[in-house]
């Protein structure tokens, strides 16, 4: 009989601790919803003073003159992110193929920590390298305008998304069943033919996931872009002329914008646009994974 209360206590613990874990788990959803809610609530107030058409379509941004057209920032963000994928995507995929199929074990053992370090380097350090090495190089050696601009941002971002593209596409390449490859090799295909005709098509959903995640990282990256983009609220005239992106503009202007003014709110609306783009990309990846499972 003396053991009974102890046993009961055990069971009571067992029952209630479950709710603690459940609460922690639900907190994740609560946080995401509150981010959406607060960004939405603050950002959408912009439309009380600025029309959606002006915000999304006008490139005239002049807070002193009450002009809040964010089109050049949206174009800048999208452009820089696509350039990043253009630079980082093929190189990342090649790196993943190299790691998965070509590299001897020793080199592979070097690639993995290298990949981790790429992730770990702070974005200000990337930005600083861009600012002190890449931009002067573009400007003084190659004579490409001021050096600041979309090209510099795209190149730095391309390097920053490398680890994302490499690690996820490598996983995808590795999960291709060996029997498929063996069948291809047995038919007399070379390694490249096997990669091109068997490996890549089979791993395609995973590779696309890697590229989209890279795109998401590029579009949300702030510090590195801010340091090399030139921070001029104008539509880019060329790849080498100063412009701005959503993230860089928020960082530069948030300190000056009074909270609850049209100026401040329009910056929150820009953050909301970023948030919606990232969430849409996540939904796209979910769709891809589901498609990958049905094949």
């Amino acid at each position: 009989m003396t053991e009974a209360p102890i046993k009961d206590l055990r069971l009571v613990y067992d029952r209630y601790i479950r709710y603690l874990f459940l609460a922690s788990a639900i907190l994740m959803s609560v946080i995401v919803l509150s981010i959406l809610f607060f960004m939405g609530q603050q950002g959408l107030q912009t439309f009380r003073e600025v029309s959606p058409a002006e915000f999304f379509l006008s490139t005239k941004w002049d807070p002193l003159d009450e002009k809040f057209g964010a089109a050049s920032f949206i174009v800048g963000s999208v452009y820089a992110a696509f350039l990043a994928v253009l630079f980082g995507g093929p190189l990342g995929l090649a790196g993943a193929l190299f790691m998965a199929k070509v590299a001897p074990k020793r080199v592979r053992d070097l690639m993995r920590p290298a990949n981790d370090l790429y992730v770990a380097i702070p974005s200000v350090v990337y930005g600083y390298l861009g600012l002190t090495v890449l931009v002067p190089f573009l400007r003084d050696e190659l004579k490409l305008g001021m050096g600041f601009g979309l090209f510099a941002a795209g190149l730095i971002l391309g390097i920053m998304i490398l680890p994302t593209v490499i690690s996820i596409s490598e996983d995808a390449l590795r999960s291709v069943p060996p029997s498929l490859e063996e069948a291809s090799v047995a038919l007399g295909a070379t390694r490249w033919q096997t990669i091109w005709h068997v490996l890549i098509p089979t791993a395609l959903p995973g590779i696309l996931t890697a590229v989209i995640l890279g795109l998401a990282r590029a579009i949300g990256e702030t510090m590195a872009v801010q340091m090399v983009i030139g921070n001029t609220p104008l539509l880019a005239k060329s790849l080498f002329s100063p412009t701005a992106t959503l993230t860089s503009e928020i960082v530069v202007e948030m300190g000056n914008a009074p909270f609850n003014s049209a100026y401040g709110n329009s910056l929150f609306l820009m953050a909301l646009v970023l948030l919606v783009i990232s969430l849409l990309l996540i939904v796209a990846i979910r769709g891809l994974i589901r498609k990958g499972e049905t094949i």
Partner: peptide, 17 residues
């Protein structure tokens, strides 16, 4: 899904939140 979304929220947006 929430965890994935939270992981993809750009850090500047988290800062503003």
């Amino acid at each position: 899904l929430s965890v994935e979304c939270l992981a993809s929220v750009p850090s500047i947006v988290l800062g503003l939140f």
